[in-house]
Design a protein around this nucleic acid. Sequence first.
DNA 1: GAATTTCACAGACTATAGTCTGTAATTTAT
DNA 2: ATAAATTACAGACTATAGTCTGTGAAATTC
Lengths: 202, 202
Amino acid sequence: MSLSLRQQKALQTKQRIVAAALDLFSKKGFDHVTVDEIVQVSNTSKGAFYVHFNSKYEIFLEKFKEIDEFYENFTETLPKEMSSYEKILLLTKSQMIYLKDCLGIDLIRTVYMSALIPNQPKFLSNTDRTLFKIVHSFVYEGQDNGEFKKYLSSQEITMLITRCMRGTLYDWALFGEEFDLVEESQKFIRTILSGMLTKVDN
Amino acid sequence: MSLSLRQQKALQTKQRIVAAALDLFSKKGFDHVTVDEIVQVSNTSKGAFYVHFNSKYEIFLEKFKEIDEFYENFTETLPKEMSSYEKILLLTKSQMIYLKDCLGIDLIRTVYMSALIPNQPKFLSNTDRTLFKIVHSFVYEGQDNGEFKKYLSSQEITMLITRCMRGTLYDWALFGEEFDLVEESQKFIRTILSGMLTKVDN
DNA sequence: GAATTTCACAGACTATAGTCTGTAATTTAT
DNA sequence: ATAAATTACAGACTATAGTCTGTGAAATTC
């Protein structure tokens, strides 16, 4: 069923708010943009803003959710013949490049900050669930074909790998732009995985 | 030189504020305590509060910094005959027990949140921290005596190990009390270190 | 198609972290 | 000892995220 007139208008309002907000955020940085400014630029109101978003953070959180599309696209275009180890490394690299170039450090910082506010909808844990599933499929496969050790369960290993990613992203937000996100994440994941390989290669 | 009368009074005021604040935080949680409430209970004022602290967060941050005393005490009571691997594992375990039992999840959550606010005094990301120095000394020793591989520098390894700690603490703050901080941190550090050992043992 | 209900929105209002200015007590200078 | 300077503090003020209430247009009910 298509949208009613009222729903169409509401959607347009929401889109105007998002467009104005993201534009302002990119120009001035999240912390230097006020909600009043956003509603003024988008010709809306506080009332409208908080109908569509529960907080100022949610604008960024909504943008952050788009990463699920990236994950889907990634799995579709992944060569079958890669080892599980290589798949996890490539996923990490592609993901970090995406986060750095498409979303940016200010968004990640904001998402990682807001995730620690109590009673906030758990976006980070939710979107990370998609990531968790993908990583888990690689880990499971790797244990199944004897590439990885089995002294930890596939769930436990997956948790550790995604924790490496969160830890690296947190450090990126913490140390700032001079931190090489792609390089650091590769180094970290390579190291943690090397302890799990059955075959020693260096 | 000892404190002047004015400095003595100022110190007393600061201590009254800290005592009142920590008491209120532990009873109601950081987010449900206002600065107005703190200054009322401590019989001081906003002016006094912001002379002694740059933000509400800084009360917790100051408490958090006490961990350096814990680290110093730890190194003093550490048996010499342990391997570097065991030292790092024990440090992690003791540290996490300290954080869990003496500081608590609300404090860690607050510190990890506030560290991401721009222009905030950088304690977590300060690589001169006692924690970095201690871990680095163990790593250096371990590389020196042939226990650890040398394909990464001691600084890089130290950074990865402390990143594991930060990642685990972030996850604790994120997932809450049901997350077993001590167990999870041991699992994580054991795994990352196993990839660095020259001698394979399982 | 008139009456009722819903809801997207406007904008006034509230809560609270943090700032600013004046002051009195202490410290320093002369 | 007196004058000048400093500073810890009090409390009014500001900035801003988020809430609350009223309204008119759209949707639904009869």
